[in-house]
Simulated scan of single mutants.
Amino acid sequence: MKAIFDDRQRLHDPQHFMANGKTYPSPEAPERITRLLAGAQAAGCRFQPPVDAGLGPIAAIHSAEYLQFLRTIYPRWQRIPDAGPEVIPNIHPGARSDNYPRSAVGQAGYHQADTACPIGARTWEAAYWSAQSAITGADLLAGGEHAVYVLSRPPGHHAFTDLAGGFCFLNNSAIAAERLRASGLRPAILDVDVHHGNGTQGIFYARDDVLTVSLHADPDRFYPFFWGGAQERGQGRGMGCNLNLPLPRGTGDDGYMKALDTALARIEAFGADVIVIALGLDAHVDDPFKGLAITTPGFQAMAAAISGLGLPLVLVQEGGYVSDALADNLAAFLGGVS
């Protein structure tokens, strides 16, 4: 299988992660890349660098205002007297229809949903090449490849049109889907990350030309909390083009596969001719986030079921955090793709 990766994705090295009122080292560390590369290579992937397609395909998803913020906020932040080493919001608007401030602090609160997406000196560069990797993967699929793996890091599925969050800055899966749609294909996004793909849902919620499907731990007591319910079906033209399948915490292989059958039936009903898999591996039983309990063989079964539709696949890396099983889980999933 062809695979895409750019080593500049290592340049984002977040030092701050807050959970339950305490600060920890970020789980979204560059070490993830080393383990994911090992897993992909064990599965026989042949890596190549992305082609730089410029800002256009990224701006097809993200607003110019937001892209300007991501590109410039770090040097602006450093001009604040006694500023911290990373851009981390400390205030948020009550509603995002409120004033758009000129202040770097105010704009950080407007464009960063939480404290899990600190911006450092090289974050924009890493996120840019993560997105370019997804664009190249989509272009290869549009050019006739049947399956392509994209090692995109930082991940993307929590990023909205103009809002970062949950370790994510640019929505790589959405960018890939839009690129495929623009090439004349009809894409579905299947998100198998343990967390709901709230940014992806938000981007396409009122559209009927991209189907969004997410299997995830029930958000009532799990990040992202405010999105991911089964009642969220889309709006306007997009009504019925969003499917959420929230699962009880601790769901294992059998329960997951039943929900996946429902997801695949919806993809068939949509008439998709290509699937973007938002490939989170954090549903594993030993992942640090402990949301679901998928086994390593379960990932292979998951991939085999998806491949059973016979559609071209671009697999865009989302979550999956540092654990002894991370490389094996990726190798298992890729090994199930046919």
Rank of each mutant, 00 (worst) to 15 (best):
A304Y: 00
D220Y: 06
A174G: 11
L67C: 03
F167T: 07
P14Q: 02
A265F: 00
P219Y: 01
A293V: 06
Y100C: 12
A113P: 06
H196W: 03
Q107M: 13
R32A: 05
A113K: 10
L245H: 09
N329D: 13
F270Q: 10
Q235M: 15
M302I: 13
G291I: 04
D254S: 15
G255K: 03
M239W: 15
G255I: 02
A325R: 07
L211A: 10
L140C: 05
P89V: 01
D324Q: 08
L313H: 00
P85D: 13
A164K: 05
L245D: 10
G137A: 12
N20P: 04
Q235L: 14
S152P: 11
I88K: 01
T161S: 12
Q132D: 10
F169L: 12
P50N: 06
R153K: 09
S152F: 03
V337G: 09
P312V: 02
A95G: 14
A53V: 14
Y223L: 10
N99S: 15
A147E: 12
F69I: 08
L140M: 15
A305W: 00
F160A: 10
D6R: 04
G291C: 05
N244R: 02
S214G: 09
I33H: 02
P30E: 08
P57A: 07
L264N: 02
L326Q: 05
S103F: 03
G336R: 08
L260E: 03
F222Y: 15
A131I: 04
P187N: 06
D218M: 02
L37S: 01
F69R: 05
A116Q: 12
I294H: 01
R8H: 10
N198G: 10
V150P: 02
R122Y: 13
C45I: 05
A325N: 07
G234C: 12
A83D: 07
S63V: 10
G137C: 09
A83W: 00
P154W: 05
A147M: 13
